[in-house]
């Protein structure tokens, strides 16, 4: 967590979209930005890019104020996927409250996915986070493409880990909000047991989730 100020009744959280280069992390955020209501969020901030490739990160902030007046700000980040930006990934990962691992569904990308996941594990331990204790959702993106691995293959690989897996197409907008909802729900649960969001701070899960995942009018 980035910041927790009980006196100011404010909590700032960090959600990080991780994954190999060109797996669609920024597209996920663009999609969330388009699909979710602007009432509960700020603007998407895309920091400098080179050839449309993220070199720092993208940031989409969400915020929520409970009826009791407790404020939660959820900042959603992407990391640069290219191998060379490992130091930036470490910097962005610091104090993360949840991870969405965006994998590329294309058949030829499995090695890159595995490499990036191993990198995630390494970097989490570098910044002092345990991958087993962190809310983590796996998203297999680019389901709209042809040469992709089957859902059976995916569940064969990831089923045993017990991690939630979402099939998505960021280009079409499929599974993007679902991924986000799942990870936010996990983040809430993790924080609730640590901070007593419901009992002590008066933050109801349903209310919080409804607020930060509110859809744009006209989308269903």
């Amino acid at each position: 967590m980035i910041e927790y100020d009980e006196q100011q009744r404010k909590l700032v959280l960090k959600l990080v979209y991780y994954g190999p280069a060109l797996s669609g992390k920024t597209t996920n955020l663009l999609c969330l930005h388009d699909l979710l209501s602007n009432e509960g969020r700020g603007e998407l901030m895309v920091l400098d890019t080179v050839d449309d490739r993220t070199i720092y990160f993208d940031l989409l902030p969400f915020f929520y104020v409970s009826p009791s007046g407790f404020r939660i700000k959820l900042k959603v980040f992407t990391v640069p996927g290219q191998v060379r930006h490992d130091a930036t990934r470490k910097a962005v990962l610091q104090r993360a409250d949840g991870i969405v691992f965006v994998a590329d569904s294309q058949k030829g990308e499995m090695a890159n996915n595995a490499e990036s996941f191993a990198n995630l594990e390494r970097n989490l331990s570098f910044v002092g986070l345990a991958i087993g204790k962190l809310p983590l959702v796996i998203q297999f993106n680019k389901r709209d493409l042809d040469a992709i691995i089957t859902p059976e293959e995916i569940s064969g690989t990831w089923g045993p880990t017990g991690l939630p897996v979402v099939l998505a197409s960021a280009l079409r907008g499929d599974g993007i909000v679902e991924t986000y909802e799942q990870v936010v729900s996990l983040i809430y649960d993790a924080l609730d047991s640590r901070l007593g969001l419901t009992s002590r701070l008066g933050v109801e899960k349903a209310d919080f989730l409804r607020s930060v995942t509110r859809r744009q009018q006209g989308y269903q």
Binding site: E43, M45, L47, Y56, A87, T88, A91
Partner: peptide, 21 residues
């Protein structure tokens, strides 16, 4: 403010990366 924010984030990240490197 938006520009300053971007610049600040960029330079902070940059500094963090430089320090770490």
């Amino acid at each position: 403010v938006f520009g300053a924010m971007k610049r600040l984030l960029t330079s902070e990240t940059h500094t963090a990366v430089i320090n770490q490197t």
